[in-house]
């Protein structure tokens, strides 16, 4: 529900927003909420409501994008490891070990510093830190599925490895992946907010929520609206994704579905 609402806001941002998220009005900077500006104005006199609305676009898109990249990479690595096995399995799993052992925020900071701090690079950095989880998940699924009867049956019918993987393995392994992905998106949005806070994430004047909270934090006690509205937006969206993830799992996990 919440996620759908935000997706809608993101999609319709130009029509919902009151003005461009970048229009400055220095003379009225830091004015509080009013009918004309329901969420008030920020330190450069930009309309916080419009920035939050446009920010929905950035947050939703970036969350989905990172999950897509990370899971695509993870699926490939996990399938290769689980299906081919042997030396490949060993090498790929040790690689995931290394990435998992790496403190993720430091890795993200370093990558973001190398590629220059920007939203895209922060997202890339987060993707780099999150693919191993997907790889492990898929590998475990592949290992448990590859000996199933229907795989043998498909093989008996002369299906090639690729066909078996694409037709049978991946679709069957998707359920836990989907759960992991929905649960992961919230974390991704928060990590990118954290990176913005320490200066390694989105850069001004991008209306990214984390950056808005971070920029508004010096006004927290006097002009609360600058940081609080984007923070609430993050809360709702991340909560939405988390609840959605729980829901998806309850639906997809057959063991849990049985009882009720």
């Amino acid at each position: 529900m919440i996620v759908a609402l935000f997706a809608l806001v993101a999609l319709l941002a130009p029509w919902i927003a009151l003005q461009s998220p970048l229009t400055q009005d220095l003379a009225h900077r830091l004015t509080g909420p009013s009918p004309a500006h329901p969420f008030g104005l920020d330190s450069l006199g930009r309309d916080v409501f419009s920035r939050v609305v446009y920010g929905a676009r950035i947050s939703v898109v970036s969350g989905v994008l990172v999950v897509a990249t990370a899971s695509a990479f993870g699926i490939t690595a996990g399938t290769v490891a689980g299906w081919v096995g042997g030396w490949w399995d060993e090498a790929l799993m040790r690689l995931t070990d290394m990435f998992l052992a790496f403190p993720s925020l430091i890795l993200a900071m370093a990558i973001s510093a190398i590629l220059r701090p920007s939203l895209t690079n922060a997202l890339l950095a987060i993707a780099v830190t999150s693919w191993p989880t997907y790889a492990r998940l898929i590998r475990a699924q592949v290992l448990s599925l590859r000996s199933r009867d229907y795989i043998d049956a498909a093989r008996a019918q002369g299906a090639t490895d690729i066909v078996i993987i694409v037709r049978h393995l991946i679709p069957n392994a998707l359920a836990p992946l989907l759960v992991q992905a929905t649960l992961n998106i919230g974390g991704i949005i928060l990590t990118s907010a954290g990176l913005s806070f320490i200066g390694f994430g989105a850069q001004p004047p991008t209306p990214e929520w984390g950056l808005m909270v971070s920029e508004g934090r010096t006004f927290l006690m006097d002009q609360w609206w600058v940081a609080t509205f984007p923070a609430l937006a993050i809360l709702l969206l991340v909560l939405g994704f988390n609840l959605l993830g729980d829901g998806v799992r309850d639906v997809l996990d057959p063991r849990l579905r049985k009882m009720g």
């Binding site: 400055q24 330190s43 450069l44 701090p117 200066g199 850069q203 001004p204 004047p205 920029e215």
Partner: peptide
């Protein structure tokens, strides 16, 4: 990144100069 002289956001100042 961070602040410019006088404690204002360097990003804000850069946006202003750009404008």
């Amino acid at each position: 990144n961070g602040t410019a002289a006088g404690g204002i956001s360097a990003g804000d100042l850069a946006s202003k100069i750009k404008n």
